[in-house]
Design a protein around this nucleic acid. Structure first.
Lengths: 244, 244
DNA sequence: CGGGGGTTTGAGTCCGTTCAAAATACGTGG
DNA sequence: CCACGTATTTTGAACGGACTCAAACCCCCG
């Protein structure tokens, strides 16, 4: 039977459709077989933690299906949701590269499947195939850009602006377009987590959501969001530009 | 004559003391000579711009002496000072890796010396010596950690907290300890830039500085800062922890 | 001496937080 | 299937922080 989102049982990584799009795509058939034989695939339940901050890094994870939340604390008990990871994303490469303990934790948002690749196997492949290292470089460089953009938005936008941006980003991933052109989605996150992503209290987020509804920009009901005119949300974050 | 902070004229990179501590340290003597022959060293005046966002990436820069401000705009004219780069730091590797235009700009804060390494030379060395790629991976991974910590602080700390943190970080780089144990420094940045680093208006920063002085935590006069008890500043950002 | 940038200060307003309580959804066991 | 307890979400009121707009100030430089 074909597995959902992942590979065909018999072929291992060779049959994994994700491999086309992530860093492992540069591996030869032989190398891919090495990878296949040495990874552990595992199913996680919703809310289950994949790894936690502070524990030693034994290898990297590759998201096969589902979604994963990357959380990071500041040592005072405050935890922030840094970003979400989706099928094809690779987690935990930094611990591997720097030989440090994990600096953040990863938690399955819904039922999710992940592959674990041991440190020694990764190193082996990294040595065998120098293109793999280059792929990781590109990946991290892209992640870096994202983090920097995030920093700029945080310094620039209001809480409302940050939330609107987040909403549009989530819509890109999780949204579907209705027949009338409006868009809707199931939020993959609790309000608490949404709030922590924009660095605000959950009460504040509640009010922001309230105001967004008043303004007719979106309708929220439980975890489903409905955006009538996505365009008007864009105007929120790219505000009154006179020349445009 | 020995050059300040950099290398000895005759030896090129081989004599560069910085090489010990940055990613180029893994190059062989032969490779280092290739590097030497193909880089352009240049002096920048205070405020001079090294490269700007949007222009194509032709290579990477290595800070030899001085300090460099990394600025990034959000497309609306708001520019944020992301971080400072110091001797030994390498700039602009992302454009190189992703083959994209520069996404931020770099400006010399004071008189600074930088080496420029062309794209083709970097690629050549990257191909010749796979350890160099690994070094860059480690470097970016570390930068990434820094960016993520920055994100968490932004989501967690108040403006005052963020500024105190910034002050302590700058003190680490630029500070000197007086005979009585207090510490002082020349700020390398204008208040405007300091404000943009914590994502606040410059007026707000002024008031924060005022309050810091009222509270006896620091004394500001022009660009010189004097911190009597650095310890009490630490208490500001690692707040009332009961068990400690 | 007169700009001009950078910096400080002031007043008013809005936004975001805190603390507290009510309302709603959710999962479990009866 | 319902009742219950728990966790999440919403709402309220009061406070404080941060922003805007504006004016004054300062200091350096021509």
């Amino acid at each position: 039977m074909a597995e959902q989102g992942g590979g065909m049982s018999g072929l291992g990584c060779l049959g994994c459709s994700l491999r086309q799009r992530n860093e492992w795509c540069v591996l030869s058939e032989e190398e891919t077989r090495i990878l296949s034989r040495n990874l552990k695939k595992r199913q996680y339940r919703a809310g289950e933690t994949i790894f936690s901050a502070g524990e030693p890094s034994h290898g990297i994870y590759c998201v096969v299906s589902g979604a994963v939340a990357i959380r990071k604390g500041d040592g005072e008990g405050n935890a922030v949701l840094l970003r979400l990871a989706y099928p094809g994303d690779t987690l935990g490469y930094r611990g591997l590269l720097l030989g440090e303990n994990r600096r953040y934790s990863a938690e399955a948002l819904g039922p999710s499947k992940l592959c674990f690749v041991d440190q020694t196997v990764t190193r082996l492949l990294l040595d065998r195939n120098s293109a793999l290292g280059r792929q990781f470089l590109r990946r991290i460089a892209a992640d870096m850009d994202e983090a920097h953009d995030h920093l700029v938005r945080n310094a620039t936008l209001s809480n409302r602006g940050k939330f609107v941006y987040l909403l549009l980003a989530l819509m890109n991933r999780h949204g579907r377009t209705a027949s009338d052109g409006s868009r809707f989605m199931e939020l993959p996150l609790s309000r608490r987590d949404l709030a922590s992503m924009i660095g605000a209290r959950h009460e504040t987020l509640s009010r922001i959501i309230g105001r967004l509804e008043e303004d007719g920009l979106a309708r929220f009901s439980g975890r489903t969001v409905h955006v009538i005119q996505p365009h008007s949300l864009f105007r929120e974050i790219r505000p009154p530009t006179l020349l445009d």
